[in-house]
Design a protein around this nucleic acid. Structure first.
Lengths: 146, 146
DNA sequence: TTTAATTATATCGTACACGATTAAATCGTG
DNA sequence: CACGATTTAATCGTGTACGATATAATTAAA
């Protein structure tokens, strides 16, 4: 009877495939900025609060230092951030936006409208869906001990 | 005013992070089978219908041959599938389950209950959420021309 | 206070994921 | 039938992603 389980029944696959679909939607928008989608997420986190540690960024994005360190080095090479040890605790590395990195936010101003349009859903529907997905994610992470 | 846009407002990030959370939940279950999550998805597709082409699998999973070819070679090395050219059309490669690959499905029988439990949601809530996410995904893919 | 345990980041190996390109097979049109 | 166009996988380069491990700094304990 479990042979009746089809791919379409898997909520994990709906998330997996919808996440990839969003990345595809973002690609042409982010290409103009020379960013990948994960790099864009890091920039969003830094625009919200500058001068965070690698660990602080990872906590917000649920990413490990083994993922973030090379990504942040690429952002540094691109001239968008600076990486410097925290003098108060030399274990930490503080990530600070450069003026170019800060200014880039303005170039993302028109993203929201285009993305909402691409969803084919109302802002209210999107909001409710987002809240339900976050609830699911937090439940899963709690179960996984994150 | 768009500086008020916080990471938590992004439905794309909710999908991205929830998808990764599911992968983390699956990891200990799949480790017993020696599978990664994407490999498991391919097995699900093949359990549903054996003898599909690389392109057919990719269409269902929204993955390119550049992703699937190395993954399928790993499944072949693991003795779970066989890859052979279609005699009727030598461009295509047919993927067939080995007896070991087919039998593995039985070892996934207890996944469903554990996963539902981990979501902390009712089966009805999960079903409704899944349908909404699929609608969103299909809208996005339509916009991206997929 | 010297040492032991913990914390923060970096490094390494493996496995996705995709765009661009290549190579081979098939199809379509003259 | 021939030959250009299309289709299908595979390959290559770049960039995530993570677990395991390493290294250095800080904290805790003896």
């Amino acid at each position: 009877m479990d042979t009746k389980l089809r791919l379409g029944d898997f909520i994990c696959f709906s998330l997996y495939s919808a996440s990839h679909a969003f990345t595809r939607i973002y690609k042409p928008l982010l290409e103009r900025l020379g960013l990948t989608y994960p790099q864009y997420l890091v920039m969003v986190v830094l625009w919200e609060q500058d001068g965070q540690t690698v660990g602080g960024i990872g906590e917000k994005l649920f990413l490990e230092s083994s993922t973030l360190t090379p990504l942040l080095k690429r952002l540094e090479t691109a001239g968008l951030v600076k990486r410097e040890r925290n003098p108060a605790d030399e274990r930490q590395v503080l990530i600070r936006l450069t003026p170019e990195g800060r200014d880039m936010q303005q170039q993302t101003a028109d993203f929201l409208q285009q993305l909402v349009e691409a969803t084919g859903m109302s802002v209210e529907e999107i909001g409710e869906l987002r809240r339900n997905i976050v609830t699911l994610r937090d439940n899963l992470n709690r179960m996984a001990g994150v």
